[in-house]
Design a protein around this nucleic acid. Sequence first.
DNA 1: TCGCGAATAGACCGATTGGTCTAGAGACTT
DNA 2: AAGTCTCTAGACCAATCGGTCTATTCGCGA
Lengths: 171, 171
Amino acid sequence: MSAATLFRTRGYHGVGLADLLADANAPKGSLYHHFPNGKSDLALAAATWASDEMLRLIAASFDGADSFEDGATTLCYKLAKLFDLTGWDTCPIAATLFEGPDNTLFRDHAEHIYEGWIAEVHDHAARLGLSEEAAHAKAEHLFILIQGGWSLARARRSSDILRGLIKRNDT
Amino acid sequence: MSAATLFRTRGYHGVGLADLLADANAPKGSLYHHFPNGKSDLALAAATWASDEMLRLIAASFDGADSFEDGATTLCYKLAKLFDLTGWDTCPIAATLFEGPDNTLFRDHAEHIYEGWIAEVHDHAARLGLSEEAAHAKAEHLFILIQGGWSLARARRSSDILRGLIKRNDT
DNA sequence: TCGCGAATAGACCGATTGGTCTAGAGACTT
DNA sequence: AAGTCTCTAGACCAATCGGTCTATTCGCGA
């Protein structure tokens, strides 16, 4: 979805319908046929799409991992590479969902997506032998590290911090 | 500055000049007298103002602290209280600066502000006896934890995570 | 009391915003 | 071949956007 990129790089209110449509080579009519509620529907869909990509990234990182730290580290490295490729823009969810017009709906969706990421990490942690409690704590902690690290990386326009996220003190 | 609040809660593109002016009870003329470049100047100023508030918060947290962990913990608690008061909106810098029109200028300002926060924490860490290297690492790490924790708190509309940020694993 | 610069006040502007609506193209069934 | 859907295409709209401009008021030194 090209819309997802637009939303991610410029934020919900930062993109106009005109840009969205031009970028997707689609006229207004098509948009409002597929997304009756227009821009907001599109934003929700773009966020879900971005979230699925992230879930795949998590799975790919943990699938061949021997330990939780192992998987977490390769996830950080993958994200660093992604950061370099896309050119330091925000977490797609935050950019797309935390500004929307219908706050309740958007916030619910954002929370659901974030919890989905944490749950995915949690499952891998549990599979790798961690206790339920430890898995929960580590998954949440990893989310925080990545989210915060990404902010700093963005401000510095450098993915370096992302790569040192795990080592520093054993997750 | 009331403008800072608006920018924080709705993002740079989310607020219109009309809202800004109505909220500040000032007409267009005054704005463009004090801020020749209009909205963007205002945003920069609002960000600086918000940053100063944060610096004060950091100083207040570490001033009476016996150890780094001590100061860091009270900072997290202060932020949690702030979170509850303001009603879960973004980091003011991110909301205001990471969407602006003149990207280079805005990004430079954002980086400068963030580094200022880290430097402030760093100084307190050094004062409390940490080595230069340790102080740097801990300051950076605390920034990441807070930034990431705040994101999660926002998604969950609950300040709980912020309070557990330090304890979990000794910073 | 006058004069002058700083600041306020808001009418006004073209461009752009998100959204609606009508017309027609395309594909599929019968 | 006719009829009936889904979907595309874009003209069009009121509202709002950020910004400019002129007129007026305010504060203060002379």
